[in-house]
Write a protein that binds this DNA or RNA. Structure first.
Length: 569
RNA sequence: GGGCCUGUAGCUCAAUUGGUUAGAGCAGAGCGCUCAUAACGCUUUGGUUGCGGGUUCAAGUCCUGCCGGGCCUACCA
């Protein structure tokens, strides 16, 4: 039995995530976690909310709440929605947890001891009206290059010129609009990543099986210009993890917090600690190679925007600590999902958000479409037409209708129990051989995290059931040879159970419904297909399930298309 | 500006890493079936692989120049 540590990029706290966020990390991670559990492996699947940083403070202010209260509330909401999508986290933690505070401060202390932290004095823009330092992009003004009056302090969106905040004409705070700005001197800690460049480069180069998307981004950062740059790991904010040197105070760093991208990945580790606190158990055997984690395979899932932090700064933190923490073994990264010709956008409220999706359809519909269209090789696009067509065809017609025709035929001819009699012919042997090949291919794709290919293969396995039924034609066989028809339909009933087991990673609710209808709990992975198709023995009782997947009507589609065409408040 | 990814059938995507005649699903057309959610099965029409050069016995795949789409560019996360 292998041991899999799986983490999904942790969603930011400032609102409900959209379907693009979901398909880029949490959902494929869940697919993989469920699959590995299904294969009988030991899995630790962790996710959390990422709660620090300027946007969290601003979102809380906008909601009129203290930031700690806001984050606690949003964490609860995100946890509830994750449950709604059947994301099977072993623990859904918080980057603001005491565990993460302690661990983040611990890592900073270790890095300091290793000579990898440098204090840098720099000049930053301070807004008197807002009472805070402003990150470059929270300063607006007129672009000195093109005259655009909403240019940001880091770059002008209009002419794309890179800017310094001090370049802007009539700079103002993007938060309050105040022009009462001044440049102040402030001291920050930098992680000397540049010293670890060679080590990181060797490490990345050893990962020849990683997706190009992952390694090319890492290599660009390692080699571009002067190479990997040191990175500030502290900020002048109120909300965050106070800068400390392990347990000790850090002179000169009073009132400062760690940068959100320093503490967020550490939450992957701290989250295991939160899990242990909540459930009991030993979290270090998942994370410390000196304490039982040497046989763990660690896989991370994330959108492409997260790649530099997971390939460079977090590994630099781990390596630099000099302690035997588990390093990631495989990074699966995703492109973006677009919405009807544009981008999904949290800040602009464009697209379908996770809570809205669950209001209109059950989780399985979304899980199936999103996973079978996951943006693996390039950005992909959500359209309502495509969604309706795929869901109706794949789930309702191919799988749902198969269940329906088999169970209803059996009920009318043999009653609601698995019929006895008859012997396999060449057709059944051929079906078993075909399924064996296909399941093997399905396993290969799932092991390789080829999400779309896995979905295709699973669908083909469903189709094989319809093909068999059409060729065997038990409705005809029944007229001359009822025993033979009994054998055919017994096999078909067993196919339903087999499908429930194989499909569980994609559509867990439907899988459970089918298992209940077949009145069985035998969900072991079908390593032996022939044996798996005899689990439901003659005289085993079953029930005819209600419609497994209903179809999306044209009216509904048009209605939703219209309802989600604008922006959310 | 720089770097990376990408462009294949009406649509969504493949193509064993340079190897027979570029394949699937959906949509379209035809036939069959009647157990089933008007479902299922079989057959079938669609491609000058964005455009132009080049390398090679062989190019969707490699090189090069254009054209289009996207991402990143380190203080948003």
């Amino acid at each position: 039995m292998a041991r899999h540590l799986i983490t999904s990029a942790i969603p930011y706290i400032n609102g409900i995530k959209h379907l693009g966020n979901l398909v880029g990390s949490q959902l494929p991670a869940d697919l993989y976690a469920r699959y590995q559990r299904g294969r009988g492996h030991e899995v630790m699947f962790l996710c959390a909310t990422d709660e620090h940083g300027t946007p969290a403070e601003l979102a809380a202010a906008k909601a009129g709440k203290p930031v700690a209260e806001y984050c606690a509330e949003m964490h609860g909401i995100q946890a509830e929605i994750a449950k709604g999508f059947r994301l099977s986290f072993d623990h859904f933690g918080r980057s603001s947890s005491p565990q993460n505070h302690a661990l983040t401060q611990h890592f900073a202390g270790r890095l300091h001891e290793a000579g990898l932290i440098e204090e840098v004095s720099e000049r930053q823009v301070y807004s008197n009206a807002d009472g805070r330092f402003l990150p470059d992009r929270y300063i607006e003004g007129t672009c000195p290059n093109c005259g655009y009056d909403k240019a940001r302090g880091d770059q002008c969106e209009n002419c794309t010129k890179q800017l310094e905040p001090t370049d802007l004409i009539e700079p103002r705070s993007a938060i309050s609009g105040s022009t009462d700005l001044e440049v102040r001197e402030t001291k920050h800690l930098y992680l000397k990543q540049s010293q670890m460049r060679g080590k990181l480069d060797d490490w990345i180069n050893s990962k020849s099986d990683w997706p190009v998307l992952t390694t090319s981004i890492a290599k660009k950062w390692l080699h571009d210009g002067d190479g990997l740059q040191d990175r500030g790991i502290t900020r002048d904010l109120d909300w965050g993890i106070p800068v400390k040197n392990g347990d000790a105070d850090w002179p000169g760093m009073e009132g400062k917090v760690f940068y959100v991208w320093f503490d967020a990945p550490i939450e992957y580790i701290a989250c295991a600690g939160e899990w242990a606190e909540a459930n009991g158990g030993d979290w270090e055997r998942w994370w410390r190679t000196d304490k039982g984690a040497e046989d763990v395979r660690y896989t991370q899932f994330m959108g492409k925007d997260n790649v530099p932090f997971h390939t460079l700064s977090f590994p630099a933190t781990i390596m630099g600590s000099g302690e035997p923490w588990k390093l990631v073994d495989y990074i699966k990264s995703f492109n973006y999902l677009n919405y009807d010709g544009g981008q999904f956008s949290t800040s602009q409220g464009r697209g379908v958000f996770m809570d809205q999706a669950l209001e209109i359809l059950p989780a399985d519909y979304w899980r199936w479409w999103l996973l079978s269209h996951a943006p693996e090789s390039s950005d992909s696009e959500f359209t309502w037409e495509n969604f309706q067509a795929s869901v109706n065809k794949d789930l309702a017609d191919v799988l749902g209708n198969f269940v329906s025709r088999v169970t209803k035929f059996c009920r009318s001819k043999f009653g609601e129990e698995v019929p006895a009699g008859g012997n396999y012919t060449d057709a059944e042997t051929a079906l078993i051989a075909d399924l064996t090949t296909r399941i093997c291919a399905y396993e290969g794709h799932m092991d390789a995290m080829e999400v779309r290919k896995s979905a295709n293969e699973l669908r083909a396995i469903w189709v094989a059931g319809n093909e068999y039924l059409q060729a065997a034609a038990p409705w005809s066989t029944f007229k001359e040879d009822p025993e033979q028809a009994a054998m055919q339909i017994r096999l078909a009933l067993n196919l339903i159970r087999l499908y429930a087991v194989l499909s569980k990673p994609f559509i867990p609710d439907a899988s459970a419904t089918l298992m209940t209808a077949m009145q069985t709990q035998e969900d072991a992975w079908p390593d032996d297909v022939a044996a798996a198709l005899e689990v439901l023995a003659p005289s085993h009782a079953f029930t005819v399930p209600d419609v497994t997947f209903r179809k999306i009507t044209d009216d509904e589609r048009a209605d939703w298309q219209d309802r989600f065409s604008g922006v959310r408040d």
